[in-house]
Write a protein that binds this DNA or RNA. Structure first.
Lengths: 377, 377
DNA sequence: CTGTTAGCGCGTTCAT
DNA sequence: ATGAACGCGCTAACAG
């Protein structure tokens, strides 16, 4: 690997001159510029990023902590959003996964910080608010994803899942449905699960419909769980004409269970999923669902992180400017415009994707969920 | 950030001593060790990884080039395999995505190299064999995934897709099927597509069954494509009792199309998908498929990369040892055992996952695919 | 405009 | 066993 020294020798100039043409940090006579460029090309010179990072005290890397790249498309989509922002900003992305384990998350964040990332985007589930607040005291800007941490609201990009679920239920109410079941996750301690349940209840409340716990069926949040949840619901003979599910996987399982019981979706029972997985569009009936805007969340988080970073660089620049003779520091700081984010910008509300699985309430079909059970007995 | 200097001051020793206790590179008296340890803890000292990288000429990072983290679970699973190996080896993973675009792939690799990654795992689709061979001349070990590059066979971890498809067809043949359709991808220039098709043909050849191009239906490789492919196949009235699909998505679409045409899977037509997507286990009938062992591929690629790296470090160590007074270089090189990989270790053959969608050939049901068409006309 | 010099933080020699 | 001094490759300050 050729170094700046080799280049300077070949071009017959000093290393500072080479550095100057690399960074365009000050005027250099055209002929020398050319000589240096030529030498660089000839030697296939690439500046050593560590040496640069060492003196500049910045690495041009954005660190990202995710749960598990393999856990479905979730983080993958988030990463795509992040990359959409970071790469054009000419920075690198370093990803580490915490696997939702406390120690791993902590270690990964430390590692990222150790690497002197310019900023961090953190999706943490296992660390407590206090720990995250402590971590965020670091010099490097840290942005949190899918979490709303008290006192750190302006650093949190999150999705109002509860509102999303409310939207789903409202949609069914608008169609005239009154007995709306909820196919819920049995991971009751999960904040996500609680939020979605809250949305369900709030929508009912607002519509003046009393919450009926018999309409809620808990199961593991996958296809099989959805299947079982419906079985259990039918067993109860509670009579419902629609359901919302914790997620699309459960909804798919639920629809298949209903079909097996000769209950038609959507003619007899309407269904709404959550997340907007790709499959929802490829099953019959196509599943109405609530879109979880994860890619946008990633993008916004990345933008926010960048902006906090830019703001700090700007501050530092101003300080220097005051204290010292006004010099050309613009290059060193490579000042960027910083855009302001309001708290509203950082909050996302899932939107409804209407498809085939919801129809208006139908008096005659309304008895299907109980009729069917009885005839089977 | 505290530096080694701060520690040395606080501990009343020289910076060299501090360095020694950090790297355990030579004996230090117990009391000094203790003093240094205490000082490090007190200052919360973390060695600057750039300074380390600068002098050690290694970054402890493994660079990974993927296609697109968002393009389905594929790369996510590969990453998981890679992380399973790299993280325990106490190294970092830097991911970049090339999005299958020539320039992006090239730039990303350069960027990774520039970062002085210790080794690279590269999944490239857009670069030519020649370009990759050129790139692999670099000092840093580079391993290629899902590709078999001439002269670089010992650096390529790949999947024999063609053999996987052959397995699928053989399975159907063993069940007595003779008219086996192939729901193919219309991306004919895609190497993957060609390989799968080859496997299909080879299996038929070996069984002495003549290839019938009317049994092959091309379409876009997703659910809708699979659906259309079946429609077109039925239109041809060719009569088939089983099919293999280019991938699971197409298989799912194909099954739904058959169902719509009142053809029962698996009673009248047997079906086999490819990839082993999660959904295959959650639809009815559960789809028999061929497992694409992508996670293992990732693991193996990472292991190979690590081993090439270790081997080089060992070489360098031996060289030094010869030339110089025999000193304690073990620490500096942190020697690892290197395990040998045979070419067979680097090649994966997909295996069959048997589920509900395949049954033995049934004489009576055999006419379904044509009978159905006729009755509809 | 340009070259010289002094660090950035660390590992490693060479003396002691 | 230990400290002083040097160099990794680069940027930034200082003097021409």
């Amino acid at each position: 690997m050729a170094t700046i020294k080799d280049v300077s020798r070949l071009a017959n100039v000093s290393i500072s001159t080479v550095s100057r043409v690399i960074n365009k940090s000050s005027k250099v006579s055209p002929d020398k510029v050319e000589a240096v460029m030529k030498a660089m090309a000839e030697l296939n010179f690439q500046p050593n990023s560590f040496a640069q990072a060492l003196v500049n005290k910045k690495s041009n890397c954005i660190g990202v902590l995710v749960g598990d790249l393999c856990g479905g498309p979730f983080f993958a989509q988030m990463m795509r959003g992040i990359e959409n922002v970071i790469l054009p900003a000419n920075k690198f992305v370093i990803v580490m996964s915490g696997k939702h384990e406390h120690d791993r998350e902590k270690n990964s964040i430390d590692a990222l910080l150790l690497r002197r990332c310019d900023a961090l985007v953190v999706h943490s589930k296992a660390l407590s608010d206090e720990e995250l607040i402590e971590i965020s005291r670091s010099d490097v800007p840290i942005v949190f994803v899918n979490r709303l941490i008290p006192t750190l609201e302006d650093r949190c990009v999150w999705v109002d899942i509860s509102a999303g679920m409310e939207t789903a239920v409202n949609h069914l109410l608008k169609q005239g449905h009154k007995r709306i079941a909820y196919i819920a996750s049995d991971e009751v301690n999960n904040q996500d699960a609680r939020d979605r349940m809250d949305g369900y209840r709030r929508a009912l409340d607002n519509a003046g419909i009393e919450f009926d716990k018999d309409l809620v069926s808990l199961a593991f949040p996958d296809e099989i769980g959805g299947h079982n949840a419906i079985e259990s619901l039918l067993m109860r003979d509670v009579g419902f004409t629609a359901f919302v599910a914790y997620n699309d996987a459960m909804a798919v399982g639920a629809v298949s269970a209903l079909t097996e019981n000769n209950i038609n979706v959507p003619n007899e029972v309407s269904a709404i999923g959550f997340d907007n997985n790709l499959i929802t569009n490829f099953i019959k009936p196509k599943l109405t669902t609530v879109r979880y805007p994860i890619e946008e969340v990633g993008e916004t988080a990345a933008k926010l992180a960048l902006n906090v970073l830019y703001a700090r660089e700007r501050e530092e620049y101003e300080e220097r400017k005051e204290k010292e003779t006004n010099r050309n520091y613009e290059r060193k700081f490579d000042l960027h415009d910083v855009v302001e984010f309001t708290l509203d910008d950082l909050k996302f509300i899932p939107d409804l994707i209407e498809r085939d699985s919801v129809t208006a309430y139908n008096e005659e079909a309304a008895v299907a969920t109980s009729r069917n059970r009885k005839s089977k007995k």
